[in-house]
Write a protein that binds this DNA or RNA. Structure first.
Length: 746
DNA sequence: GGATTTTAGGTTTTT
DNA sequence: CCTAAAATCC
């Protein structure tokens, strides 16, 4: 027997050794979970389980990669263990089994963007007003139905006479039939279809039950009903199912994650053992205490108390800035100071509730020459130019993919515009063929005689590329697409800054292709597209480079940093505005768990910052400190604020912040008044629109291109611009932005 | 059909 | 504030 169990605490040892039957491993933040999982897999193998019979599901590709490496290092044949995310696992299963549902093996994976395009088309076809049914909201509803294992057919039975539900049901049904025609699956389908196959075909299910005799699920608190079903089906025969999670870190409710999965595990899986890992090896006592004090305000938790022997450490520094710029100044200062004293940039992470908070801080870091890496935001793979190239690749792989033909048939411009496309689509629908097939029968469409040449040119490009792709590397294929379609020429000819940025992104795609071909076991077009569809930005995070890291709290789950800045700690941001509107307390509870996750990312130092005034969506808002501030024990905090007279930071009275935040809860008006007068200089400078000079006054007569002559009835500052409300005799009130619209004074 | 201008709309988190 | 789509012009 090897030394696997050395250096483990008693609970960890137990977790490694309890291999048979259902096991719930409640692993608090920083409790050495990943190490335990790796050792558990190694232990299974040492005790005669074939690596081939073990399946481990992780939340991200990054976690899967890490675990693969660690397992391979810990045990021979570790490479044969199946370790991947839910989505990747299901793709692998579906590539083998999906024929039975009438799809072809070469199905495309639609990302959120593809799905929304398709839904949009459907809304148009069904004549549904997008005002009441935005493609995004419908996509969300369909997604959540799928996550709850409700098929289009079964939903239809439940809708009765509710108009909204009926509409959604119609769209859902059509959406599924179009996906099938396109031979495509969306993210949710990957799991849902797998479950459907397992439920309908017991012999197939049994094959996989035999294969996966030992199953491990990481981040169990973030599984949804569909994933739950999958696990349940797979483990039903051998019942060796080990789930690992922390109910306090369940933060993906918006994506259908159901915290009840973890709360009810013992009920659902009879005879389950429970082991708690409560010793934290990551953070100081102060940080842990803060986290515990916040999370204890949630009800209905599994009882669990994290402890550490790391010692108290430094107090948490709380800074209430006058405005968002001041907040970034504070952060940049602290980082600069620390680096001057021998610290590294990579010691720092800046975490925020939503991506829009990254912009101001980015500006500041650039100004101060502080190197940083930003995760999230507009994901690389959803940039237009990248999606265009991928659109070509998806089409080469799966010619039934109508959504992607529509995307690229006129990109770059080749004279096949909207009206041509409409006619083609109509023809394809009539004849029940795919859009691509309809191109070959262009001569049958009399109205499109004049377009025949252009269409044929397009077909030639695609067919030649298809031929080329059969033998070429991914890298060469992308290059060929870029040159053959004229895509790169067009961008080069443009020569604008924007076009150059796009070229840069395309170069990055080429590097990614090379990297992929170096790493991948099977660097095919299919696996490249799969990787691209399922990879998250955060999967590329590595600790190697010495830069500050910027990301959302969601992305930071599972990571740790010596120093963490948690910024934008304000009501309306964190907890988010929407969660505070939700009548059910569970919405704010999820935010609180998110707060818990954020705090527990920090190993040694934690900064929490908020601003009294902040530019949000083009206007300045005065926000209160977050309600979670009141849940932090004051003896753990050091509070700072900025003296507006001297522009110096000073240690300020905790009570000041506290009282303000408490008092303001009952009267937000009072709060607002207080801050718009206090520190007036700083505040007003940023408030006043700078770039726009306007000559309008209320009562002026103006002329506008479309609506004609009207009267100005209101002028409001809006960010750097002014919003002008004009009353027109014909159409009533309209609003215009002074800088953008060409209003003429008459 | 395509480019440019103007307006509307969203705004939480993401596999 | 941003982006995306609609409206308008060429």
């Amino acid at each position: 027997m090897s030394n696997l169990l050395n250096n483990l605490n008693p609970a960890q040892k137990e977790a490694v050794k309890t291999t048979e039957g259902p096991l719930l491993l409640l692993a608090g933040a920083g409790s050495g979970k990943t190490g335990v999982l790796t050792k558990r897999i190694a232990y299974l193998i040492e005790n005669g389980v074939r690596p081939f019979n073990i399946m481990a599901i992780t939340f991200t590709n990054k976690a899967a990669g890490e675990m693969k490496q660690r397992v391979a290092a810990a045990t021979p044949y570790g490479n044969d263990v199946w370790i991947s995310t839910f989505h990747s696992s299901c793709v692998r299963i579906l590539r083998r089994e999906i024929n039975i549902l009438g799809y072809e093996t070469h199905f495309s994976i639609y990302d959120a963007d593809d799905s929304q395009r398709l839904i949009k088309d459907i809304l148009k076809k069904l004549n549904i007003n997008e005002k009441n049914f935005s493609p995004k909201s419908i996509a969300n509803e369909i997604s959540s139905l799928k996550n709850n294992l409700i098929s289009a057919a079964s939903y239809k039975k439940t809708v009765e006479n509710d108009y909204r539900m009926k509409t959604i049901s119609n769209v859902y049904t059509k959406y599924q039939s179009y996906l099938k025609q396109n031979n495509a699956l969306d993210f949710d389908d990957l799991i849902f279809k797998t479950v459907q196959i397992f439920m309908q075909y017991p012999d197939i299910l049994e094959k996989y039950q035999e294969r996966f005799k030992y199953i491990l699920i990481d981040e169990y608190q973030d599984t949804n009903a569909c994933q739950y079903s999958l696990i349940r089906l797979l483990s039903a025969k051998y019942k060796n199912i080990c789930v690992v999670g922390d109910d306090d870190q369940s933060i993906y409710g918006f994506r259908g994650a159901d915290i009840r999965n973890i709360l009810n595990f013992e009920k659902d899986f009879t005879g389950a053992a429970i082991i708690k890992l409560e010793q934290n090896y990551r953070s100081t006592e102060t940080i842990l205490k803060a986290a515990n004090n916040v999370i204890k305000n949630n009800i209905g938790r599994k009882s669990k108390t994290l402890w550490t022997d790391k010692g108290k450490g430094e107090k948490i520094k709380f800074y209430r800035a006058n405005n968002d710029l001041d907040e970034t100044l504070f952060i940049a200062d602290e980082i600069k100071k620390a680096v001057e004293n021998g610290g590294k940039y990579s010691d720092f992470a800046i975490l925020y509730r939503n991506n829009s908070l990254s912009r101001t801080i980015e500006d500041r870091l650039v100004k101060n020459a502080i190197p940083y890496r930003l995760f999230g935001g507009v994901p690389f793979y959803s940039r237009k130019e990248i999606k265009d190239v991928l659109g070509y690749m998806k089409l080469l792989y799966n010619p039934y993919d109508n959504t992607n033909i529509q995307r690229i048939i006129n990109v770059p411009k080749r004279g096949i515009g909207a009206s041509t496309l409409d006619k083609l689509t109509a023809f394809a629908d009539e004849n029940n063929i795919s859009l691509y097939e309809s191109l070959f029968r262009i001569e049958e469409i009399t109205e499109l005689k004049t377009r025949t040449k252009k269409i044929n040119e397009f077909i030639n490009i695609i067919e030649e590329l298809k031929e080329f792709s059969k033998t070429s590397s991914i890298y060469d294929l992308i290059n060929e697409i870029l040159s053959k379609t004229g895509y790169i020429n067009e961008l080069q000819a443009e020569g604008t800054e924007e076009a150059n940025g796009r070229i840069e992104n395309l170069n990055e795609l080429l590097s990614k292709a090379i990297e992929f071909e170096n790493i991948s076991e099977e660097p095919s077009l299919s696996s490249f597209l799969e990787e691209v569809a399922l990879v998250a930005d955060i999967d590329n995070y590595s600790e190697d480079s010495d830069t500050v890291v910027l990301m959302t709290i969601h992305s930071s789950k599972g990571l740790e940093f010596p120093t963490v800045f948690l910024i934008g700690f304000e009501e309306g941001i964190f907890p988010s505005y929407r969660s505070t509107l939700d009548p059910s307390p569970s919405a704010v509870e999820e935010e609180r768990r998110l707060c818990y996750v954020a705090i527990t990312r920090a190993k040694e130092k934690l900064y929490i910052t908020c601003a009294k005034s902040r530019l949000q969506n083009g206007q300045y808002n005065s926000n209160l400190p977050s309600r979670f501030f009141d849940e932090l024990p004051m003896e753990l905090l050091e509070t700072y604020s900025l003296d507006t007279q001297t522009n110096k930071k000073h240690l300020s009275d905790f009570q000041e912040v506290k009282i303000i935040s408490g008092a303001a809860k009952t009267s937000s008006f009072k709060h607002h008044a207080e801050y718009s007068t206090k520190g007036a200089e700083n505040y007003n400078n940023t408030l006043a629109p700078k770039n726009v000079k306007i000559d309008f006054e209320i009562g002026d007569k103006i002329k506008q291109l479309k609506y004609g002559v009207g009267t100005v009835i209101d002028i409001m500052p809006a960010g750097a611009d002014f919003e002008i409300t004009v009353e027109f005799p014909s159409t009533g009130k309209k609003k215009f932005m002074a800088a953008l619209s060409k209003l003429q004074k008459i």
